[in-house]
Design a protein around this nucleic acid. Structure first.
Lengths: 251, 251
DNA sequence: AGTCTTTGTGTCATTTTTACACTATCCAAA
DNA sequence: TTTGGATAGTGTAAAAATGACACAAAGACT
């Protein structure tokens, strides 16, 4: 082993941050967790931003993203994937953003490169509540967001694209659904991620063929229409599949 | 417009670097441009590394990658794509790497996050020559590389994966070939990127169906076998295709 | 003239994809 | 209790894509 791993002080690195695009699904549409910075001095600009923060010098990037996610939502062990690095020198150019940084950063004018992550959470696991840091955080439908602080809108776009691409290749969508879900819910999820309609019967056929769903002998209750049967995701089958070199859903 | 874009001094940012995985294709196999650091003091470790350097504070990440690429090869206007950010706090832990950094960096112990890019170069455009910085740079077959400085081997792996994935979706492989090429060369290129054999006839059928090749009325000369006809990549057709929402080669 | 090497080509069986419409089941309201 | 409203659930046929497979043609060299 190497014996030269110096203890590195746990200080914030003023030049590198992580930002998290935390996706949820409210069974209708894809949502994203944004924080509301409130009114920012005189300058007017977007109030909403993605959660993010500077990294510590003793944590790696994945850890930093997990930490930010957990600080905001209390959730750990969440699906996380890197989207990429964003480092335009002028990504912090809006007056409102600069004002805000002055109030939260020791070196508000430092050049910061940010590494974006996206994560998938079951929306029921995190219902933003009025206490804590999360008092000004909430789920917003992805499609209704038109501007965000800094370059966060661009980051959101990149995260959506990455998710769209990734879901064609791996069944990560299950991270967004409750343990028990219906095929219609899954269907709507895929439609909202891929942003296009998918034929119901063809979708069901394709999903079923993957053999990663268990049909629970249980039905929805209390819905004002024919109740749907509930399914759960079968992780075992999924592991089998991935190990055999599976890589295409082909939606 | 915003008038608050302060002039930022053109200084090296001690915390962020870019590393480039520059792919080439020698008509036999996929290669990558590596630099040879020579013998490094007493410590023994990998001599080879990917080209890379700290970024300047007035350039964005893409620009930094282009600059590094151009400084090494003299080439500009090259296909470049971000692979991702690598930021393990201990990515600089090998003794040999630390020694080397002492000789080239003002702050050799700084924690550095690196952003990796991959680029595709026509190998004939850059024949490493004995002069300049490139005197210790050269093309190495990707499959023969087993270790590299820092976390560069991991970066190379990630770049290969990204290329593999990307080439299934867009015909970027043409960036690696000469202007005029044969279908067999293209075939070998795909096989070496995807790292598996592809049936000759099926490959040709699939490529032809894309309609992005122009069959030049010209044949190979001087080869000791039946000469192949030469093709060129038809950018116009390709643009048409991408705009119509094309996204799957499906190899 | 013969040998070596690589090019270039077609078909058939199987699988995958696409497009498409009606009945079943539950709740709620009349 | 009947009816209307809403969503669940299901099959088929045509078209397209895939995968497997073998041999003649063209040139260089001896």
């Amino acid at each position: 082993m190497h014996n030269n791993q110096k203890k590195i002080a746990s200080e914030l690195n003023p030049n590198v941050s992580v930002d998290c695009v935390i996706f949820g699904f409210d069974l209708e549409q894809l949502t994203v967790l944004v924080i509301d910075r409130g009114e920012i001095s005189a300058a007017n600009g977007p109030r909403l931003a993605l959660p993010g923060n500077l990294i510590y010098d003793n944590e790696n990037l994945d850890q930093a993203a997990s930490r930010v996610l957990e600080e905001l939502t209390g959730l750990s062990n969440i699906y996380l994937e890197q989207v990429g690095a964003f480092g335009d020198p002028f990504r912090i150019h809006k007056e409102s953003d600069r004002e805000w940084l002055k109030s939260i950063r020791a070196q508000p004018d430092a050049r910061v490169i940010t590494v974006a992550y996206f994560s998938l959470v079951k929306i029921s696991d995190y219902l933003p509540h009025a206490s804590s840091f999360a008092k000004n955080a909430g789920w917003a439908p992805v499609n209704e967001i038109s501007e965000l602080a800094f370059d966060h809108f661009e980051i959101l776009q990149a995260a959506k694209d990455k998710l769209k691409q990734k879901i064609k290749i791996q069944p990560i969508g299950f991270n967004l659904l409750p343990e028990k879900f219906t095929l219609s819910q899954l269907h709507r999820l895929y439609e909202s991620i891929l942003d296009k309609p998918l034929d119901k019967r063809n979708f069901r056929r394709k999903i079923q063929k993957l053999n990663i769903l268990s049909n629970l002998k249980e039905k929805q209750r209390g819905v004002p229409h024919k109740p749907s049967s509930l399914y759960e995701f079968n992780e075992e089958k999924y592991q089998e599949l991935t190990q055999m070199g599976f890589d295409n859903f082909g939606f």
